[in-house]
Simulated scan of single mutants.
Amino acid sequence: MTSQVPLPEPDFTPLDDVFVRKHLGVPDVDVADWTLTVEGLVEHPLRLDMAAVLALGAKRLPAFHECFGSPFAPDVPTRAVAQVEWAGVPLAVLLDRAVPRAAARHVWFEGADTGSFHGEDGLTYMKDLPLDVARRDVFLAHRMNGEPLRAEHGYPLRAVVPRMFGTNSVKWLTRIVLADRRADNMFTTRFYNRVLPGDTEATPVREVDVSSKLFAPRDGARVAAGGVDLSGRAWSTTEIVAVGISVDGGPWESAAVDAPGAGPTWQRFALTRELAPGPHRIRCRATDRAGRVQPLEGARNAVHEVAVEVAGGAPG
């Protein structure tokens, strides 16, 4: 008889520390007037108020959540990442009720946020996904870490797309449209597209890159000499199989990496390293199951580096 090794418990980012990004401001949504429609190429269009959404029940989805960064600087690392326990309902539940027509190929997601961006007025924030991907992956969330969504995080309902950059997770969701083509919107076909390594044509910014971030010690920290615990989190579209840590440009040393959790969550890594008094540079570099390795520089997922001061060095 063999025993099962328990999966690691996910660690969640406090809500006050979860990053906030918005292109068109935070809309003032009155939930008493709010509705979500499912329309377009469907047999049974839907209109749901919040009571109807809540009546669908609530599942939980622990998942990491990463910001892609500015569409004007697609190769600049942002390091904005969090892990959240979402609560809500899979999009597939609503699609099953609406019944997509045979011609439907894409799903558009539109938020309540409106305004001006990059010299263009009258915009709404919209993203789109292929129908099969949306049916499989999209989650409609109304809670974060056990609390109702805050206004800045998409109250009262938002889309969440695990393993995709946050730009695809439309906040303040009001409309879901099934269509036979992609949405023509500033945030779908004009911005948030990039040319991946080895490709020649731009594709939509969707799946995350392999990445990692040092959480401890923090950049600029002062720590005691001796064995210093170096730790952080790594994530990708698939399992992280290795994380290397380099000190002061030295060789990559293998950190211990947690096994993947039950959902699309990040993985902890840690290494205890003797550090002499004085300044040090520490970097981390992740490799995923697909063989992707973080680049050293020149990319948005380039290796993360922190500078620390170990106590006991000569005064500067």
Rank of each mutant, 00 (worst) to 15 (best):
D49M: 00
D49W: 04
M50V: 12
M50G: 04
M50T: 05
A51V: 03
A52P: 00
V53T: 02
L54R: 06
A55E: 14
A55V: 09
L56E: 06
G57N: 12
R60E: 15
L61V: 03
L61H: 02
L61M: 07
A63G: 09
H65E: 12
H65Y: 15
E66R: 15
E66T: 14
C67E: 12
C67W: 14
C67I: 05
F68S: 12
G69L: 08
G69V: 10
P71E: 12
F72S: 12
F72H: 13
F72V: 07
A73V: 03
A73L: 14
P74M: 15
D75I: 10
D75H: 13
P77H: 10
P77C: 06
A80E: 15
V81S: 08
A82Q: 09
A82M: 08
Q83D: 04
V84L: 14
A87R: 15
G88P: 07
G88E: 09
G88N: 14
G88F: 12
L94G: 00
L94M: 07
L94D: 02
L95A: 05
L95P: 06
R97G: 03
A98D: 05
A98I: 10
V99W: 00
P100Y: 05
R101V: 04
A103S: 05
A103I: 00
H106P: 02
H106T: 00
V107R: 02
W108Q: 04
F109I: 06
F109P: 01
G111M: 08
D113M: 07
D113P: 01
D113F: 01
G115W: 08
S116P: 00
S116F: 05
S116D: 14
F117V: 06
G119F: 13
G119S: 12
E120T: 15
D121I: 05
D121R: 13
G122C: 07
G122L: 12
L123R: 14
